[in-house]
Amino acid sequence: MKTSNPVLARLGQAAERERAAGYAPTGPYGQPGYPQQYPTQAGYPVAPPAVDTMSLDDVVVKTVTLLGILGVTAAAAWALIPDQLLGAAWIGAAMVGLVLGLVISFSRMANPALVVTYAVVEGVLVGAVSKFFESLYDGIVLQAVVGTFGVFFLMAMLYKARVIRATPAFVKGMIAVMAGLFAVILINFVLALFGINTGLRDGSPLAIGFSLVIVVVAALSFVLSFKEVEDGVRLGLPRRYSWVAAFGILVSLIWLYIELLRLLSYFQGDD
């Protein structure tokens, strides 16, 4: 089977190696298959150990689990982190989350503990960011939460109806755009540390336009996540890889939520 996602292609190859090592492959209609040869004992064939393959339900359950962990951690961070330490917690959690995210993204093995750790760290980030914006603009957090999940469900419906398709060209284009945006955001952050204002984050029309672009790209990134889930199920990846798929959805949700907070703040006006 072929997929446009190189990471999933590698995972699919890993799954094939597992099956070749003695795991039962998935047959037609989801029934377990059997290798042509396997060990015998006392003259009778011994069935190889079966590997549960990932399903859509697995991804949904794990995504909800990660969201629950993130929500509890965010609430704890909101309640426990003093206002004067919000900035330090915000930057620290963002840096640690970035490192963990890169490790998970480029690793070939699914590591549930690492994914859960990422959710905890990002919970601190989300809690600190949310507390900061809510202290400035009452009600903005609820607006951002509603907007985030509204966009998520809209994209899910559009993907299910095949209005938006994750074609190879779309996937390559999205990866290029996201990499470019990440570079711009990182450069802008570094320049801001030296007091240089690029106008991308100051509430100006340019900043509003930049945030709108990020919101659109973050929304479209759900299509990549949905395609990842679809391909993972089709490739018959082991069940543990549903953690990786859930991680991809969580990353897009966090990215969209934080950017919506920023965009909404531009329209709040001064208190």
Rank of each mutant, 00 (worst) to 15 (best):
Y241W: 04
F194R: 14
A156F: 03
A246F: 02
L142K: 03
L181F: 09
A183F: 14
V141E: 12
G147D: 01
F133L: 05
V217C: 08
M178S: 14
L235A: 06
S252D: 06
G236N: 00
L142M: 08
A166G: 10
Y241P: 00
G147P: 04
V244G: 04
I164Y: 14
E230G: 05
W243R: 07
V216D: 07
D138K: 13
L206F: 14
R201Q: 12
L237K: 12
G248W: 08
A246N: 07
I196D: 02
L142V: 10
L154W: 13
F210D: 04
F133A: 08
L142S: 14
S242L: 07
L154E: 01
A161G: 08
S225H: 14
A207K: 10
I249M: 02
F152Y: 15
N197F: 00
T148P: 01
I140H: 01
L206M: 14
M174G: 05
A246H: 01
V217T: 09
V229K: 12
S130M: 01
L235E: 03
A166I: 06
V163E: 03
P238K: 06
K131T: 07
G195D: 05
V216A: 15
L224S: 08
I208S: 11
R162P: 07
E134C: 00
V146E: 05
S135P: 01
F194T: 13
V216G: 03
G209Y: 15
S211D: 09
V216Q: 02
V129G: 05
T198V: 08
F247W: 13
V163T: 10
Y159H: 07
E228K: 11
G180V: 09
D231C: 12
V141A: 10
L186P: 03
G209L: 15
